[in-house]
């Protein structure tokens, strides 16, 4: 697809144009970090913008969402109402390519062959994804490719103060057409290509074959030793999608984020818990991302955004977990799985 160049103010003008028809969400600086909020229609994220505090899954699969509303009426059948499917057109500007690719992973879950989540699907189809490439990796980042196009409709790369705009989908094309921007010249394209080629090596996240053999390995107990089983890593993970469904007392059936790290997650009403300790729970999180998910959907459920690394209260660094797993001996393994 096409590539364009935008100079300084042009990006702003284009976004202002988009904002006339759609709700534009952009990284907005709050007291404790960046968050996606309605764009102020005048400023672009500053140089200190690394990534948003919360992952963008929140914009498609909100932390809590009403699935059904109901009213109980004495002596009559209850009234049950399904909330409207969201219809507003949105643009997410400034999302990082790692996070954009997480949406493609989530699509496997919420827009599967057998069941489709109507709320998630509506938001996905109403939202244009305009991602902004990072200039360098942050200290806790370990994405494979800074310039990944996965999940983006439009990818914007800042080169020498101007913007190289790569159109990746028809939806992206439609949002860009007719604004009179110049097609990117060879010089800027070459420069961007060079940036793409000269990325530093990062951690190899493929531990699939190793995981096949270490389900019963004592390494899991060791790895989880300092874990406190809170939900930081899973709630801030752009690909973690576990949820609970509960009824509140005020007439709503609510879906809310849940976490495989919580003891209550798999505990049955009888008291039996298939994952009774932190060992099974950490193993589940790692196996899910690097073995179960790839086995089902042929992709690792970790995009390397580094939020879990940055925010873990005890500095349990998933990069070290990956390396320790890669290095562990598999003599005490079950080859059953």
């Amino acid at each position: 697809m096409s590539k364009y160049i935008m100079f300084g103010e042009e990006l702003l003008q284009w976004l202002q144009n988009l904002a006339k028809e759609s709700k534009v969400l952009a990284p907005v600086k709050e007291e404790y970090g960046y968050t996606f909020a309605e764009w102020d229609k005048k400023s672009l994220p500053g140089d200190d913008y690394r990534n948003t505090l919360k992952p963008p899954k929140d914009l498609f699969f909100p932390q809590h969402e009403t699935l059904l509303k109901y009213e109980k009426i004495k002596g009559e059948n209850p009234l049950v109402e399904v909330p409207d499917i969201p219809e507003d057109k949105r643009v997410i500007f400034g999302i990082r390519p790692c996070d954009a690719s997480s949406l493609v992973l989530l699509d496997n879950i919420f827009m599967g062959e057998d069941y489709v989540d109507p709320y998630y699907e509506a938001r996905r189809s109403n939202t244009l994804i305009v991602s902004l490439v990072c200039r360098t990796r942050g200290k806790s980042c370990f994405c494979e490719d800074l310039f990944s196009t996965k999940g983006s409709d439009i990818l914007i790369i800042k080169v020498d103060g101007n913007y190289l705009v790569e159109i990746l989908t028809y939806r992206g094309e439609a949002a860009f057409k007719g604004i009179g921007s110049k097609e990117a010249d060879e010089k800027i394209v070459k420069k961007a290509d060079k940036l793409k080629r000269t990325q530093e090596e990062v951690l190899d996240k493929d531990i699939f074959e190793k995981l096949r053999t270490i389900y019963d390995n004592p390494i899991w107990k060791q790895l989880q030793e300092k874990c406190v089983n809170c939900g930081v890593c899973t709630f801030l993970c752009p690909t973690c999608h576990c949820f609970d469904i509960t009824d509140d007392k005020r007439g709503k059936k609510v879906r809310s984020w849940d976490s495989c790290m919580f003891a209550s997650f798999t505990k049955q009403a009888s008291g039996h818990n298939p994952r009774p300790t932190g060992t099974e729970r950490l193993r589940q999180r790692i196996m899910h991302k690097f073995y179960y998910f790839p086995e089902k959907y042929h992709d690792i459920a970790c995009v390397g955004c580094g939020r879990c690394v940055e925010k873990c209260p005890v500095n349990l660094d998933i990069r070290q977990v990956i390396e320790k797993i890669r290095g562990c001996l598999d003599e005490k393994s079950l080859s059953a799985i």
């Binding site: 404790y32 406190v228 809170c230 930081v232 709630f235 984020w257 209550s264």
Partner: peptide, 24 residues
């Protein structure tokens, strides 16, 4: 209002040792 209910505060707290917290 900033809280995302990850319970990190509770889980790192040595005084919060309840086997089953009231939230669960």
């Amino acid at each position: 209002s900033k809280c995302i209910r990850c319970y990190a505060c509770r889980n790192v707290c040595p005084a919060c040792y309840c086997k089953e917290c009231f939230v669960e």
